[in-house]
Design a protein around this nucleic acid. Sequence first.
DNA 1: ATATTTTTTTAAGTATGCTTAATTTCTAAA
DNA 2: TTTAGAAATTAAGCATACTTAAAAAAATAT
Lengths: 238, 238
Amino acid sequence: MLKSPNFELKNMSTISTENYLKKIFNHNKVFGEKINAVKLAQELSVSNAAISDMAKKLSKHGLISYEKYKGIELTDKGEQMALNVIRRHRLWELFLIKVLNMPWSEVHEQAEVLEHHTSEKLIDRIDEFLGYPDFDPHGHPIPRKNGSLPDAQYYISLAEAVEGSSYELMQVDDHEKKLISYLTKVGFVLNTRFVVIDKLDFDKSYTIKFNDTVLSVSQKISESLYLKEIIEAGEKNG
Amino acid sequence: MLKSPNFELKNMSTISTENYLKKIFNHNKVFGEKINAVKLAQELSVSNAAISDMAKKLSKHGLISYEKYKGIELTDKGEQMALNVIRRHRLWELFLIKVLNMPWSEVHEQAEVLEHHTSEKLIDRIDEFLGYPDFDPHGHPIPRKNGSLPDAQYYISLAEAVEGSSYELMQVDDHEKKLISYLTKVGFVLNTRFVVIDKLDFDKSYTIKFNDTVLSVSQKISESLYLKEIIEAGEKNG
DNA sequence: ATATTTTTTTAAGTATGCTTAATTTCTAAA
DNA sequence: TTTAGAAATTAAGCATACTTAAAAAAATAT
């Protein structure tokens, strides 16, 4: 019996494909629309030709649907794979920070590697060890084993904060290693409580105070910091 | 200025090269002699042609010294790299078993992957978390950060055990996933204490008793189990 | 010393996932 | 509706790490 020509439609899970799926998923999550091919190329730092190649392969395997000049979207199957990679990434991040005490600034990069090299059995152990957490250290929801996603946490960004109010730092956009290093250096870490002292109209920067530190935060940075308002005892509104 | 032709003598650490170095190191450690190319090909399940290619590359990078028809040996540089991979492997094994409670039977395989994807900073954290251990769950020494190797532990194998004496199971040869599954299933796990009840000359099998289980162990298996003799209080010999 | 066998190398080919350059296809604006 | 420009594809090439088949080199046996 002759082997049919394209017989090989099996695994299709490589580091590259996992990264494509993740990016496609995230763009859709953040912007609510399908990503277009040129944008995807930029995001992944590859050429348009590479996207063209890979899109063909992912389509063939039923992981994306791609209408040219329109954009790229995950199929259900592709979305499940993306959620799985994201699950591994976020569980590793939490584990590296909470259990192994790795510095924030190194965690993202290492999780970016480990997410592609972790068996389901191992990630389940980590999940169990952490007590089946719903959120990673950035406040992002961790996809569950069954593929469902906990409801997102809604935080405001510092750019929306109000002078005089108190907040707790809940979440920092990752992918910006330098930002996290900087914040760590000045002592402005996750779960730090602070007061907004001033908002300068001039450059849209914020002056905040935590512990005994007064810090000026630029507009750009303020947009990457997510907060929960602290309601002081006594001022609970009913 | 023209680029010189083979300008690229930099990193040279890939999954493949790490596995070559590990095998070369281990053969030398176990047999006390350099491995020959054909043997290495068998061990790595690749063709002789692949060895020929790779040996050239590893030599060029100063990681091995290779005299054809004689054998392959690590240089100091190559040995340091090998020790580093082995360090990562053994620390991961211990971590997966002790901290994450992974079953023995899955640990070797997963460590085999993670050893190639772990930054120095991460492995140092794991080392610290475990309290800078000297031995992995098989009783093998864990290379230290500085490249030194703790003194080996000398255990006897069950095949050398004496009828009537008490022992503790200290070490099991890995690479034999099925053996480890079997031992776990029958409850004969690491650190189990047992008595040798009988040694059958007939087939060189052993009958041992631990907890309330009596187990017959074939000659083949007995050679893969390593023991420490238990000296009962009172029978200390001076 | 010669023949046989084993070891080793070379040559050509494969798959993945990229690259650049050239070309084609489609959109959108005049 | 034509056309300029953007988007997408194709073609050829690269690196890694393999493969098989054939050729060459060295070791061993007679």
